[in-house]
Design a protein around this nucleic acid. Structure first.
Lengths: 203, 203
DNA sequence: TGTTATTTACATACATGATTGTATGCTTGA
DNA sequence: TCAAGCATACAATCATGTATGTAAATAACA
């Protein structure tokens, strides 16, 4: 093999990440070697070690390729018509987040992060999940607080409890669906679930 | 080392399982070797290979030591006073299930199954989780159907949706808590969450 | 009941394969 | 010409599975 242009090198880097995504998804992170990834991209381990320091570095690069869905929940909510009620804003943001999950790339990477990797080297996927969940919770809570001030929510339902209820529901749905994404549509069933919950929580 | 009596041999088997539970929990399944388990129990790999065929066999034996919490949800419900309403029965069964999780053994093994192991050999933890979730769902749905016939639930809330809502909530809570069990009490926060949901779903 | 034979319940040793990190070589674009 | 962008080669480690050794518990037997 000969030397390639900068664009070609960047392309092989992407190809390696694509290959890693596929093989990680199929076999799990721990049980895939760097050579399996390289060969899946029609390369050798030399290319992998040129672009990445090691498996952990490759893994982090993989996660950085897509932004996490719930990380953008607040942005989605803000992008929607701002004159809607806070409850409607959260509900629509949930819908938008669910639609994100239909993209295979999101689904595969979340599945890798949640179901297909244990600790390794200095990377702790549970801490990363915790950080995402915490940020999601803060965003949701913020909107519920405003909804509460406007007396939109059922009496006796505190913003904190509402936020925890919604986060648990979304998290449970996500985990359940990711275990076998072919079983049902996350958008259809998820939106129905979210709508039901909001109907119950609305005054 | 010399030969031991049958009782002593059974004790070392339990000690090996205890060691596996601890080391799996601390380092994840993939990154712990059989020798690490053996040395943690003050044994050698010879003992491990005597009592178990391989790592997968050891893992399965570990899971069989405790019954899964939601597997007994129905039994718990039946054990409680049968003259309570179906909704109360499910709610109390949820409480009992949450209390199960406070036992360190349950917490650790569920955490291993959910967060600390990928595929390996012929064992697929995701399928095992799916089986547990499906059985839990069926049990819950059964009770909600009866509650629906008695017109105990909010109008427009089908038993199927109610069951999915409760299952998602419980699953989301479980996953969130298992990521960092020291953060809050699963019994206190979980029961509050469940009670809130039932208040919303009750007519 | 005492003696012997045979398993049991491991420990130890060994062979093998897999994976990793690095070192080095090679080709060509800039 | 030089170094980017890989491929190839090498050394070292690690985990696994199996084979073998062995002391004592237990069974067999007289």
């Amino acid at each position: 093999m000969a030397r390639k242009t900068k664009a070609e090198a960047a392309a092989t880097r992407e190809a390696l990440l694509d290959a890693a995504e596929e093989v990680f998804y199929e076999k799990g992170v721990a049980r895939t070697s760097l050579e399996q990834i390289a060969r899946h991209a029609d390369m050798t381990r030399g290319a992998v070690y040129w672009h990445f320091r090691n498996k952990g570095d490759l893994f982090m690069a993989l996660l950085e390729r897509v932004r996490m869905p719930f990380e953008e929940l607040a942005e989605e909510a803000a992008r929607l018509n701002a004159d809607a009620s806070p409850l409607e804003t959260i509900r629509l943001a949930c819908h938008a987040s669910l639609q994100r999950l239909e993209q295979p790339s999101y689904q595969r990477i979340l599945s890798i992060l949640i179901h297909r990797c244990e600790f390794f080297s200095d990377i702790n996927p549970l801490e990363m999940q915790n950080a995402l969940a915490q940020q999601c919770f803060d965003d949701i809570l913020d909107h519920f607080r405003r909804a509460h001030e406007l007396e939109l929510m059922k009496e006796g339902l505190s913003p904190e409890l509402a936020a925890r209820l919604l986060q648990s529901t979304l998290g449970g749905l996500l985990h359940d669906w990711l275990r076998d994404p072919e079983r049902y549509s996350i958008v259809r069933d998820g939106q129905q679930l979210v709508d039901t919950l909001f109907t119950l929580m609305r005054r």
